[in-house]
Each structure stands twice: as structure tokens, then as C-alpha cells.
Amino acid sequence: MKARLVLGVGVLTLAAATGLRAQDGPGGGPTAVEVASEGREVYEQICQACHMADAKGGSGAGAAIPALAGNPRLADKDFGTTILLKGRGGMPWFSDILTPEQMAAVLTYVRSHFNDYKDPVTVADIERLAAL
């Protein structure tokens, strides 16, 4: 329900709202940082931060950042979409950073480039799950 609301609003408005969080933060105005629209670029600009350039993730103190490369759970088209919309464990939702178009593009890229699932994830897929 929250995701639906969020998807309707522009990215800029939401960036401004982060100023209202009480946590320590830089405290500037709305950011001019733009995320590209193409799947590979979205991966490099966002996902790679944690899942790494080779999509193999990495390990930490008794815990790990999961690999996206060769990950059989991604066979289910909706698996990644649900995580992008709702978050999972330590990973936050990305509905305030990525548009449905960007989510579809990057999921399609991750599933086909780092795995062998060729059917694309579409904006309709994203919207269907966001509406749940």
C-alpha cells in the first residue's frame, strides 16, 4: 500500500522529505543526483554498492551480502521485484530512489546478465506487485 503511494510521487519530493528524518544526515537540500534509466547503469549506480560489480556479494561478521549472480531464487520473476518494493532484512526498499521503469530495467538486467532468465520484468509486473 505504501509502495503504491510512493510510486505516484516524483523522486525529488521524496528526497526533500528525508530532511525530516531525525537521524544524523548531511542536511543539504534535494539532491541533483540522477539515476540512469538503462538496466546496466542502474545496476552500477545503485545495486553494485552492496552486491558488488561482479554481483557476487561478499561476507562479513557472521553474515553476508547475497550474490545475485547465479542465484536460483531469481528464477521467480517476482522475487526481486518484491524486495525492491518492500526491502528484505537489512536491505531497504528502493521505491523512493527508483521509478517502476528503472526497477523493471535493472531486474531484467540482473536476471539476464548475471543469470540466464531471459524473460523481461515489465513495468506492469512492478505495478501489479506494488498494488498488493
Partner: peptide
């Protein structure tokens, strides 16, 4: 923070 942090972290 936000998208800028992800870009730099990557």
C-alpha cells in the same frame, strides 16, 4: 546519503 551514497559506494 540516498542515491548519491549508493553511487559512490559502488
Amino acid at each position: 546519503n540516498g542515491a548519491g551514497a549508493f553511487q559512490l559506494t559502488g
